[in-house]
Structure formats: structure tokens, C-alpha cells
Nucleic acid binder design. Structure first.
Lengths: 297, 297
DNA sequence: AGCCATTATACCGAACCGGCATCAAAGCCA
DNA sequence: TGGCTTTGATGCCGGTTCGGTATAATGGCT
């Protein structure tokens, strides 16, 4: 199946006539007949009924016509955007991020960015920390907001530290610990813990493990859901104690910083050789806000 | 530009290597180089930087990769749907309609239809009455809900009368006429009238003209907006008297039927030779509701 | 510096695409 | 009803193009 087939089919389906469509496409009619036949063979479906004088669309043909229109239109639009991007007339910023720790500033940041650079289309992709790294290094994302991962200086990637976050214990508001201003790790020994699944953030998971080890005990992990929100649900249900970064927010729970401080960084990451002005501008905006302390309010 | 180019580019951009991509595509590497070069020439834009050992995407290339993924995915999906439609495993109902007079029943009707035939995808297209006819006759729509137009039996189209609507004068609730239960056309002589633009519904427009002519005067038309809603706005602002079909609803206005009755039909229209089960089912549902009086509540 | 891997170029054969000529079928008209 | 016209399908041919092999050029790595 090639675009040629789609374009030819579209012409025939719109004109409801092979010969008229052929004239419109400036090719001979037999070529059209053959192209449509090829499509029908490949799809194993009749697209056009030709019994009568003027052909009619089958239901399948009607579906295809509709989709074809959208696809060709979309392609046209895409190629136009590519050309304009190459000329620097517009840009695209593909931003990958991890949800919870960016919630505090991301929407504000994007609003400001959109105001300053209205011709840049922003594409958001929420992924796991590792996936963000991988996609940035492959050029699928232009910028990532994520956790550091094990071996990352390897590839031509650069990073900027946005914040060091402390870990907190999350407990119900009526829990005996709820009023504490800090909590030693060793108090968690034996408690049922709820922490993020390792595949959703190896850094976070491992930092917690190491916090416990330093305090001299092995954590009793009860659940490892994939979303921070799910951790909070478990805690609210009284299933155990959640361990979350301090940027987490919750109405019904108390967050108590753990001591000694075990932190996990939030970083911005990008490809070293990026000369995309849209990306440069975003990096600069983040640096500006970081200096002014506006990122964290 | 052909799909081949898009597929090839996608492979290269994903692998970030011509030779690896070539292996994945089971073609030789030079063919790939050529195909990408062709694209770059056609677009007048560099997509991939090849200076270093491993190629990198330019901003334009990144935009194209993103769009390519969506387009190819969409195409895949479309072909799958076409195949399934041909086998009768799923269906598509492309329904064209005019907004205001269908508002009373359309959402209820579609809900019921969706419940009875969950495998049918419904595609809605709101258009002008003429456009609905045209699209049905060309097979772009499977069913139309619209006004009759001048010469329509010509094509192989069939119709079903859903309703004869009277015309009403729309006035503010505090207007002297607001309490009347009917209003003779001739009272409108000299009044500033607000009626729908002719291109949005020649039938409606002409029926109003003929109502005035029969009453022996030429209407003083003040505005002809393209939307019924706009007519209501004008009337609320005290700009004049609106003429609308009785199916119009408004909180702030009074609608007074005009006498002698000048009516405009609402019809369902479809292609005579339609054997699409999804369309058949819809027609039957409408007939059923029409008989039971459920269409108009 | 030399080797290896990767991409670009040159050339060639084969496949494919489109054009022409022709055929079969269906409407249109007298 | 029978010829005329129009439309889509089929067969065949020539030219373009697509992909493969061989090879050159380039850059990274040891």
C-alpha cells in the first residue's frame, strides 16, 4: 500500500468515476483501474461497486474514503510543519517528564513558555524516569524532566539539577506520628511500607532501600504500586506507611521528613548537540526561574 | 512523497543508523540513503545530521518522526477498520445533519442507537442543508437529516418526512406581542426582521419570503446571520423580530406561531441502493421512534 | 597511524508503473 | 429494439525507478 493508492482511490471515490478521476489526476484511466484493483486485492475487500453505469462506494469504501481524507490532510499539514521548522519559522518542543514532582511548576512554566514563544508547539509525554532518558538520548524528546539514572553521562546528554528532594513518610492525619516534624528511618523497621514499583523509578526505589539499610534494617515492603496516587490510596486505607518524595501533595495525609536526609534529585536533561532554538529557549527559561526561585514558589 | 519514504525515514530515525535500519527493513543500505536524500530534497530541509559517527535528528527531522508515527499508526488502524467493515464485523454511520431542528432528539437517538449497535462508529457532520444533500448523494454521508432542497428526487435518494415545522416570530418576553398565541404575517410588514442567511438554508429563507409575499408585503430584512443562535442574540438585544422554526428553544424569548401556517419540513435522506446494515438499522430506529412519537417527546 | 564501521556514489538489472490499443458491458436515444 | 456512446477492464509495451553489488570517502577507536 502506497500513498499513490490512497490518492488515486480518493480521486475515484470523490468523483465516483474512474475516467473523470483519471483526468483529474492527469493519468490514463487503465492505470487507475489497476491501482484500485490492487488495493482491493491487498485489503481483501471490495471498495467500489462497478455494476451500474456510475460506480458507488461500498460501506468499506466509504470508511476508507473518510480515513483517507484525514490521513492525507494530516500528512500535508505535517510536511508543511517540517518545512517551517527547518526554516526556523516555527518550532516544536517535545517535553518528557515524570508526573508527581513536576506538578508544582510544570503548568505554570508551560503557560509562561507558551506566552513567550507562541509559534512553538509543545508536545507532552509523561513517562517513567528511565524512559524519559532513553527517549531524550534518541532524540525522540527534546527535553526531559526526570530522576537521574545509573549510567547517564555516557551518552551525549547534559543535565541541570532542579532540586534535591527529601523523602517523607506519609501517614493518615490521625496517626500517632502525624504531628512529628521529622522521623528517623529506623522507626520504619517492621512497619508495612508502600513504595513505588522499581520499574517506575529505580532511583527512588533504591534510595529508600539504602535509607533503610543505613539505618540497619531491611524494609518490610507491603505494596509497590506504579503510581504515587495509588500509594496515597493505600495509606489512606490504613494499609501501611507510604514513602514519597516531599513534592507529593495530599489533603488527607501528613508528610513527615525522614532523618537522616536521604534525597533524590530532579533534573532537566537534554542532548548536548541540540541547536534547536525552541529547546534553547526552554532551557533558558527554566534556568531563569530556577535562579529567581520561581520554580518552587 | 510516498509511504515508502515515510517508513524508511521512520526506521532510520528510530534506529539512528542507516545500516541498522536497512537490516530491519530487509533492504540494502544504499537504497535507504537514497530514499532519505530524496525526502530531504523534496522537503528542502535536512532531516538527519550525518557528520558524526551516528546520525542525529535535526529539529525538522524530530517533527517529522513524531508526525510519521501518528500517520502510519492511523493508516494501519484505518485499513484494519476497512477490512472489518467489509466482513461486516463492524460498521460506520456517517450522519450529516443541520443543528437546531435536530437538537430536540438527536442526542437521545444516538444514545439509543449506540446502545443497540455498539460496534458501529458514528461520525457526525453538521453542515448546511444543501451540503448534507450533496454529501449523501455522493456517498460521503450514509444518512442525512436536513431540509428538502429544490430538485432532489433527481438522484437516487430516498426521503422520509420527520416533521412539518411552523414558523414563529421570536420577540423579547416584554414585547407587546409576547402573550399572543398566534400572529398574522401581515403584522410583520415594516418590522425589522432577522432571518437566517440564504446560504445556510435556502428553503427556510424562501419560505419566509413567500409568507410575506402571500400577506402582501416585502419583508424589511435587517440582518441575515448564519446561525439560529445569532438570530436569538439580535432579538434579545432588541434589534428586531426573529423568524425561526418552532423547534427553536430559548429561555429569554417568546415564540409566536405565524398564521397562515407556513411550514418547512425536516426530512431524513439516504441513498436508494444502500445495503449497509448500520444504515439500515438507523433508518429503522428512526421510523420506529417516529411511529411511537418518541422523536418529538 | 591503521583498522573498522558507517554512509555516499556509481552502475546495473529487474520490477513496476503508466500509456496505448482494444474489448466487454451498460445506459441512452431514436 | 438496435445502434451509438460512454465507461471500466484487459493485454502488451516502453521508460522510469527501485534496489542490489561494488567501491569510495569519512570519521571514530585502539
Amino acid at each position: 500500500m502506497e500513498l499513490r493508492h490512497l490518492r488515486y482511490f480518493q480521486a475515484v471515490a470523490e468523483e465516483l468515476s474512474f475516467s473523470r478521476a483519471a483526468r483529474r489526476l492527469r493519468i490514463a484511466q487503465p492505470a487507475l483501474s489497476r491501482a484500485v484493483q490492487e488495493m482491493e486485492r491487498e485489503l481483501g475487500a471490495q471498495l467500489i461497486e462497478r455494476e451500474r453505469r456510475s460506480p458507488r462506494l461500498t460501506p468499506a469504501g466509504a470508511v476508507l474514503l473518510h480515513e483517507t481524507g484525514l490521513i492525507l490532510e494530516r500528512l500535508d499539514d505535517a510536511l508543511r510543519r517540517v518545512r517551517r521548522t527547518a526554516k526556523g519559522e516555527e518550532g516544536e518542543l517535545r517535553l518528557g517528564y515524570i508526573g508527581p514532582p513536576t506538578r508544582m511548576f510544570l503548568s505554570r512554566l508551560l503557560k509562561e513558555y507558551g506566552k513567550r514563544y507562541p509559534r512553538v508547539t509543545v508536545i507532552l509525554e509523561e513517562r517513567t524516569p528511565e524512559r524519559v532518558w532513553e527517549m531524550v538520548s534518541k532524540g525522540r524528546l527534546s527535553i526531559g524532566l526526570t530522576r537521574p539514572v545509573l549510567a547517564h553521562e555516557v551518552l551525549g546528554l547534559q543535565t541541570l539539577l532542579l532540586r534535591e528532594e527529601k523523602f517523607c513518610a506519609a501517614v493518615p492525619k490521625d496517626h500517632p506520628w502525624a504531628r512529628l516534624t521529622s522521623l528517623p528511618w529506623k522507626k520504619l523497621a517492621g512497619e508495612p511500607l508502600i513504595i513505588l514499583a522499581r520499574r517506575e523509578g529505580a532511583g527512588s526505589h533504591d534510595a529508600i532501600q539504602s535509607g533503610c539499610q543505613t539505618a540497619g534494617f531491611a524494609p518490610r515492603v507491603k505494596h509497590t504500586p506504579s503510581l504515587i496516587g495509588t500509594i496515597l490510596q493505600y495509606v489512606e486505607a490504613g494499609t501501611g506507611i507510604g514513602i514519597v518524595p516531599e513534592s507529593t501533595t495530599s489533603k488527607h495525609l501528613a508528610l513527615i521528613p525522614l532523618k537522616p536526609q536521604q534525597t533524590i534529585p530532579l533534573v532537566m536533561v537534554w542532548a548536548k548537540e541540540g541547536d534547536d532554538p525552541a529547546v534553547l529557549a526552554f532551557r533558558d527559561l527554566v534556568k531563569e526561574w530556577l535562579k529567581a526561585g520561581e520554580l518552587w514558589g
